[in-house]
C-alpha cells in the first residue's frame, strides 16, 4: 500500500461518483414518470410500472446487474441490433441496473408521499374548478418536498450500491480496493482506507441533505 495506490483509489472514487450521479438522474426522472403514471392510472403503462417495482424491489441488486450485463448476450437478435452498442458496455449496464433499481424504490417513496396529501387540498383544487392534471401540478411539488428526507436515504443506498459495479469489471473505488488487496494482501489497510472514503462521502451526503431538508420543508415549519 503506497501513495500510488491511494491515487488509484481516488480515481476509483471519481468513477463511483459518476455512476452515482448519472444513475440517480436517470432513476429520478424515471420514478417521477412512473409516479405520474401510477397516479393517473394510464392503462398499460400502469401495469408495466407496477411490474418494474415488484421485480426491482424484490430481487437483489447484484442479480439485476448480472442479468442486465450477461443476460442479453444469450440472444442473437440483440447482439446484432443497435442496442448491443450499449448493452455490451459494463458502465452502461451498471448505470442502467442502478437507475432502474433506484427508480423502483423511489417511486414507492413518491407514491407514499403523494398518498399523504390531505384530501382537503384536493377538494380546494376542485372547488377552484381545476382538472386532475392541473391539481397535480399544484399538489405534487409539495408532496415531493415531503419525500426529501426519505430520498436522502435512497441517494446513500445508490452510492453504496455502486460498489457492486466492481463485479462487472468496472474499476470504481471497490474495484481498485479489490485489485490492490489482491496485489498486496494487506486487507485491513486497503479495505480500511476504502471504507474511510465511503464513510466520508456518506457523512458529507448526510450533512448536505440535512441542510436541503430544512430548505425543502421550510413551508411546513411556518
Amino acid at each position: 500500500m503506497n501513495q500510488q495506490h491511494l491515487w488509484q483509489m481516488f480515481d476509483g472514487l471519481i468513477t463511483s461518483f459518476q455512476l452515482t450521479i448519472v444513475s440517480l438522474l436517470v432513476g429520478c426522472l424515471l420514478s417521477l414518470l412512473m409516479t405520474v403514471i401510477l397516479i393517473m392510472r394510464t392503462p398499460i403503462l400502469h401495469w408495466l410500472s407496477r411490474g418494474i417495482i415488484i421485480l426491482f424491489t424484490g430481487t437483489p441488486l447484484l442479480v439485476q446487474i448480472f442479468l442486465i450485463y450477461y443476460g442479453p448476450g444469450q440472444f442473437e437478435w440483440i447482439r446484432e441490433s443497435i442496442l448491443w452498442n450499449w448493452l455490451s458496455q459494463p458502465w452502461f449496464c451498471a448505470m442502467f441496473a442502478l437507475a432502474l433499481n433506484t427508480a423502483a424504490y423511489s417511486t414507492q417513496l413518491f407514491k407514499g408521499a403523494f398518498n399523504t396529501i390531505p384530501s382537503g387540498q384536493w377538494q380546494a383544487c376542485k372547488a377552484l374548478g381545476m382538472s386532475k392534471a392541473q391539481s397535480l401540478k399544484v399538489l405534487l411539488p409539495y408532496a415531493l418536498r415531503r419525500a426529501v428526507p426519505a430520498y436522502s436515504n435512497e441517494v446513500i443506498l445508490v452510492f453504496k450500491g455502486t460498489s457492486l459495479a466492481s463485479t462487472i469489471t468496472i474499476m470504481d473505488l471497490m474495484g481498485y480496493a479489490q485489485r490492490i488487496n489482491a496485489q498486496t494482501y494487506d486487507t485491513l489497510t486497503v479495505f480500511g482506507i476504502a471504507g474511510l472514503f465511503y464513510l466520508l462521502v456518506n457523512g458529507v451526503l448526510t450533512l448536505l441533505f440535512r441542510q436541503l431538508e430544512k430548505k425543502a420543508l421550510a413551508f411546513e415549519a411556518a
Partner: peptide, 22 residues
C-alpha cells in the same frame, strides 16, 4: 454508524479476507 455507512460488499469482503489476516 460505521457499519451502516459502508457498502455491504465491503463489509462482506472485509470480514472474509480481513479475518484471515487478523
Amino acid at each position: 454508524t460505521v457499519v451502516r455507512g459502508l457498502p455491504e460488499l465491503l463489509v462482506v469482503l472485509f470480514i472474509y479476507f480481513g479475518s484471515t489476516q487478523v
